[in-house]
Design a protein around this nucleic acid. Structure first.
Length: 430
RNA sequence: UCCUCGGUAGCUCAAUCGGUAGAGCGGGUGGCUGUUAACCACUAGGUUGUAGGUUCGAGUCCUGCCCGGGGAGCCA
């Protein structure tokens, strides 16, 4: 018999097939049995009917526990009574294993318990839907950049020093020296951009900050494009195109999952280019009107991030931040040297910063000065400085946080659900 | 790091003023031909996070510790 996956079941109407998976739930009623089987690609109901309630098939079925692994043999039937429109008329089953008493029952559980059983929680419908969307978002990101001629250049995870010198880094041993886990591939991207024109890196980033909020992970995934000769305006458009591309992909292919998550898709469907755009200076009075006491030189906090949604009802771009609150490599604006050509993209509905980026300093003298101002050790940045000596070029890039983007698309309350095994401040198990 | 809330059956929770620890789900047994977190009956299941203290008596009050949840700062 043919082994079929549940997601392909519609092509096997009235055929005898074989499904391999796990028992999600079962119900019985005298002479009829209902099995809900999942195989990782979907969920389907298998029925068995027999007037003799002591028949061998019923004996096998009745011995099954939640999450027991089994192979089901039967005929695919279209039936409007079944969820999904198809069900299996079971002729026989092979039990692979009778599962031990499964800790996650169909009733509700607390966060602590679920997080301790993350390895099993992944099997449940909601978690499955979020992570399926993750698969599509990651593929969309790669398709987007590959389709535009970007070269994927992987950057190292083990680095000799801080990329930005600000955030806390995880320290580790590198034979007889110290090494740090990378918090961004950007600086290396600037070197590969000079070699390949337009590049991106896509990998995990590690931040040893003791932040404990629903928007933070200790280990998260980030895609970082870098484009030689691009200026701020170019990179803003690239960011807009990327978000529109991802959204279009998810809305086309993952309606079903969004429905399982009960995500209101209206705010996602109205997203289009160009995004509302304002400078830091322009947005301040709007934030003050809404009750924020933020002043020039202050950074946005959680309340301000929520206000962006109330002001624009759309993801927005904020540009031209005060130089003092941004990283050392940010290119100053010619007309306002106290501001930099940086851009942050904020999601609406309070999901926070999705993208941070901008134009980099390409002038040798200015970069040297900034390194001094930030008290960064020149030796560690010698190679980075070289890029400004040998055919320097204006260039720009950004980083997009995959889990933040997913949290927003899926409407999850907490970012920890958007990655299979989240690393959180007080949780590294499982 | 700071603020805040919590830890009782495998899970989610209840337990009045300090006075015999209880319910639903899950497990077991039996019943039911269309169930949708099925339903009905019966049943087993407890060192109340931990170490002390107050008291005739502590799940409940006090102190320390451990482990978590929510939030802040910082960031993607």
């Amino acid at each position: 018999m043919t082994w079929v996956y549940i997601e392909d079941i519609a092509g096997y109407r009235d055929k005898d097939i074989e499904l391999r998976g796990w028992l999600y739930n079962k119900r019985s009623s005298g002479k009829i049995r209902f099995l809900q089987l999942r195989d990782g690609t979907g969920l389907i109901q298998c029925t068995a009917f027999n007037p003799d309630k002591d028949n061998p098939l019923f004996k096998k079925i009745d011995s099954l526990t939640q999450e027991s692994s089994l192979i089901v043999f039967g005929k695919v039937k279209e039936d409007p009574r079944a969820p999904g429109g198809f069900e299996i008329e079971t002729s026989d089953i092979d039990i692979v294993q009778i599962a031990d008493e499964y800790p996650i029952t169909p009733k509700e559980h607390g966060t602590q318990f679920l997080m301790e059983h993350r390895h099993l929680w992944l099997r449940s419908r909601r978690q499955n839907a979020v992570l399926q969307i993750r698969v599509d978002v990651i593929r969309a990101i790669r398709d987007f950049f590959d389709g535009r001629g970007f070269r994927n250049m992987d950057t190292p995870f083990l680095t000799p020093s801080a990329c930005e010198g600000t955030s806390t880094l995880f320290e580790t041993e590198y034979f007889d020296q110290k090494a740090f886990l990378s918090q961004s591939g950007q600086l290396y991207n600037e070197a590969t951009a000079a070699a390949f024109g337009k590049v991106y890196c896509f990998g995990p980033a590690f931040r040893a900050e003791k932040s404990k909020t629903r928007k933070h992970l200790i280990e998260f995934w980030m895609v970082e494009p870098e484009v030689a000769f691009a200026v701020l305006e170019d990179i803003i458009e690239l960011g807009e195109d990327l978000i529109v591309f991802i959204m279009d992909r998810v809305l086309t292919r993952r309606r079903n999952e969004l429905e399982i998550l009960e995500r209101d898709t209206a705010p996602l469907e109205r997203i289009k280019k160009p995004f509302p755009r304002m400078t830091y200076e322009e947005i301040l009075p709007k934030l003050n009107e809404k009750g924020s006491d933020i002043k020039w030189g202050g950074d946005f906090g959680a309340p301000e991030e929520t206000m962006f949604g109330e002001i624009f009802h759309h993801p927005c771009c904020i540009t031209h931040f005060p130089a003092e609150i941004k990283a050392f490599y940010m290119q100053p604006d010619e007309k306002r040297p106290d501001t930099v050509l940086g851009v942050d993209f904020f999601a609406d509905e309070g999901y926070g910063e999705l993208i941070g980026g901008g134009q980099r300093i390409h002038d040798l003298k200015l970069l040297e000065q900034r390194l001094k101002e930030h008290k960064l050790p020149r030796e560690a940045y010698e190679w980075y400085i070289d890029l400004r000596k040998y055919g320097t070029f204006p260039h720009s890039g950004f980083g997009l946080g995959v889990e933040r983007t997913l949290g927003w698309i899926c409407g999850t309350k907490h970012i920890r659900e958007t990655i299979p095994f989240p690393r959180l401040l007080y949780r590294i198990y499982p």
